[in-house]
């Protein structure tokens, strides 16, 4: 590929945006192989061969003083000057770039000087911090394009698009979770699954947290007081409603049950960290609407709704 075609490819569309967005430090190689001015051209040959590179910066007491490339090495070899010091054979007057400059600047400098590499300098400390070849730029751009692509794929396959993809006058997603009575080992699993589902539907974490807390309290009530029941979550584009229902025993005094701190839980439930009489008040606190309908001997139906922003 000629210099001009490289430049054309690297300045097309999204790539063009990227070369302005990205900085040289995003593309440069930080772990720079260097050589000392007092080294011989033989040393340079060993470094270039071992590291599989075609040039390296030359340092004198830590300061960048030149650059030595495979061309310099070939000339030295041809002249039988393998024991000659790097100082004699390097190209002084190195053109350097700053790490914080945009990548497009590096591309322009590559086109202008036709060098294979540029040492990269920190603007403040003036120290060598990296090295940049055209290959590094291409690798960096490809990596970024791949990342953008993956992000787009993820966004596309997220179930959050459900309400966009399914066209109807009113779309509703219903998730049903069975809750076993008295099974404390599993108590919380239904709410845990619901939380995961709502997050993958794209609802905001704050909203999901409120729904999950309310759902977990309702789930614990079913586990503690009943033979079992279910949690049914009805998800609509602008709200989530949960119905927690069971077949008994029912709440004799709903008003009393709603009072913070009131609890009829036996001691063994309290030992499990529940039964503090905060369940229903806590559900109320975290939801926008709540209604409780209970008949002794028949069962309890608790409904609550949390308004959400559009999941998509």
């Amino acid at each position: 590929m000629s210099e001009d075609t490289t430049a054309q490819v690297l300045t097309a569309g999204r790539v063009q945006e990227l070369v302005y967005e990205l900085k040289i430090e995003d593309a440069m190689v930080r772990d720079v192989q260097t050589v000392n001015v007092e080294s011989t051209m033989d040393d340079v040959r060993a470094i270039l061969r071992e590291q599989k590179i075609s040039g390296t910066p030359v340092l004198c007491r830590g300061e960048l003083v030149g650059i030595v490339s495979i061309e310099d090495l070939l000339k030295a070899l041809a002249g039988g000057e393998t024991k000659t010091l790097v100082r004699e054979k390097m190209s002084p007057n190195v053109v350097t770039l700053y790490a914080d400059e945009p990548l497009v600047h590096a591309l322009n400098q590559f086109a202008r000087y036709r060098y294979g590499r540029f040492p990269i300098i920190d603007r403040k400390t003036k120290k060598l911090v990296g090295i940049l070849t055209k290959g590094d730029i291409v690798r960096c751009l490809l990596r970024r394009l791949e990342m953008n692509h993956q992000a787009r794929e993820r966004a596309h396959y997220r179930p959050g698009h459900l309400f966009e993809d399914v066209v109807s006058d009113k779309s509703t997603l219903v998730l049903r979770h069975r809750v076993e009575g008295s099974n404390f080992q599993r108590a919380g699993e239904a709410s845990s699954r619901l939380k995961k589902n709502l997050l993958s539907l794209g609802l905001s974490p704050d909203t999901v947290r409120r729904i999950a807390i309310a759902s977990y309290e309702a789930e614990m009530n079913i586990v503690i007081f009943t033979q079992g029941g279910e949690l049914v979550a009805t998800i609509e584009p602008n709200q989530v409603t949960i119905r927690a229902s069971d077949k008994g025993p029912g709440i004799p005094d709903v008003e009393l049950a709603m009072q913070p701190g009131y609890s009829t839980a036996p001691d063994w439930v309290r030992e499990l960290g529940f039964g503090a009489g905060m369940g229903l008040p806590n559900i109320k606190k975290n939801t926008n609407e709540m209604s409780l309908d209970s008949k002794v001997g028949e069962g309890t139906n608790l409904r609550f709704t949390v308004y959400t922003t559009n999941p998509t």
């Binding site: 599993r186 108590a187 960290g273």
Partner: peptide, 28 residues
Amino acid sequence: SDVLLHAKAQCLLLTGLTTTQSVYTAEV
């Protein structure tokens, strides 16, 4: 229940309750 009512997201929970409920509570 008090944790669910008062704890803020991303906090550390210190507790003496070592059952699965401490983990489920933390998760929700």
